[in-house]
Design a protein around this nucleic acid. Structure first.
Ligand code: MN
Ligand code: MN
Ligand code: MN
Ligand code: MN
Lengths: 220, 220
DNA sequence: ATTAAATTCTAGGAATAGCTAAAAAATGGT
DNA sequence: ACCATTTTTTAGCTATTCCTAGAATTTAAT
């Protein structure tokens, strides 16, 4: 059973929306996630239901099936491997890779992905810190919390970002908050929720809660 | 002006068919080249005419325009750069790359191609010996003749193949007739047109004219 | 419980790209 | 010049994917 490019994009969006522990994914949520109209989503949900990658009862929610999960993870694996390729080999900046990976993830060739994985030395995380599923769809994810949830004096390492928009990533570049950077929370401002942090033991900066909510930390 | 994947495939086929000095390209030729029906070709020719990448007068022939040429060469450049990547970096065999490159050539990202070209060290030829157009569509091709056209005792170097089918390429692998190999014509059999050649000064083999017509030589 | 608002689905239509069957035009042989 | 054959185009249909407008259904508010 094969999915079209559009079907793969929908399924991936559904997987990501289900991920966050959401009980049910709404038609509107999907529409805004993939920048389309709710009417188009309804159409596609019917088709994905027929292909049995989701369980769909109209007006009520939908649930991704085991098959759907497997296929979504395959596409996500391809997307993230290509992102690693673009950054590690072609020296793309981490905020330039998403659009291109969005196209490359639909190339059909099991051999290509196998070889690419080997060429990149079987990376476990993409440039944004997200885990790369293995060929069976297994994801070994690290326990991590938003920087905003950390307490004063707690330390850790930046391991991922929630938001991958160029604007956000360029801001992080600017302040030196790369993936892998070690940080320590010095203070939390009650008034606006902003956080004062020490980056790599040398630089002190303030980050708004809009920023700290989108930075994920592996505490130590 | 942007072309769809299907339009790019048609235009590429038209370019290749025009290339061989053919005065006019027929609807049937295009249909068999891209494995489709003549009716579908007529439809597409009308569309390509409207987009002004070809000049089309129904029932009469078609002529590729300067714009069409430029776009076709851009796609060919991408196709061949990806083939180099697959062989040089991912260790694909030269008979395994075409299908995948047929997909990769449609990825839209000028930055990607620019970076890929640099990463591969600005290659001038693809794994089958075909020249890679530069970013302006300029092709610097070497003068070359079919092995079949060579005279007895003439020497040269295999620089390209006309046929890129896996069956043909695997045969060449088997007999050691790689691109770059130096060959010398020892004898030509009048009866069936087969040719006796010396490969790399060590191995003597007979090749049928079906084979020698598809091997291109730079004479020395 | 009834109504208002929000959500979701259906109907109908456009664009792309393919097909078969049949009509139209060009070509070739006599 | 005529007729038969080949080539090419058109007509009409299917499938995919998107859209707008409006109907159906659920949800939230009084
Ligand atoms: Mn991405
Ligand atoms: Mn995509
Ligand atoms: Mn090729
Ligand atoms: Mn192609």
């Amino acid at each position: 059973m094969e999915l079209t490019t559009a079907e793969e994009n929908y399924l991936k969006a559904i997987y990501h929306l289900s991920e966050g522990g959401k009980k049910s994914v709404s038609t509107n949520d999907i529409a805004s996630a993939i920048q389309t109209k709710p009417a188009s989503v309804s159409d596609m949900l019917r088709k994905l239901g027929e292909k049995e990658v989701i369980q769909y009862r109209k007006y009520y929610g939908l649930q991704i099936t085991a098959l759907g999960m497997r296929l979504a993870l395959q596409t996500i694996r391809k997307h993230r491997l290509w992102e690693v390729f673009l950054v590690d080999k072609l020296h793309f900046a981490w905020d330039e890779v998403h659009e291109v990976a969005e196209q490359l993830e639909h190339i059909q060739s099991p051999l290509l992905i196998e070889r690419l994985d080997a060429y990149l030395n079987y990376p476990k995380f993409d440039p944004h810190g997200d885990p790369i599923p293995d060929e069976f769809g297994d994801v070994r994810s690290r326990p991590r919390i938003a920087l905003q949830e950390m307490g004063i004096d707690q330390s850790g390492q930046i391991v991922a970002v929630k938001d991958s928009s160029p604007a956000f990533l360029r801001y992080l570049d600017k302040v030196g908050a790369y993936i892998g950077a070690r940080i320590k929370v010095l203070d939390k401002v009650e008034f606006d929720g902003s956080v004062e942090i020490l980056v790599d033991q040398k630089k002190t900066i303030f980050m708004s809660k809009d920023v700290t909510n989108n930075i994920l930390i592996l505490t130590s």
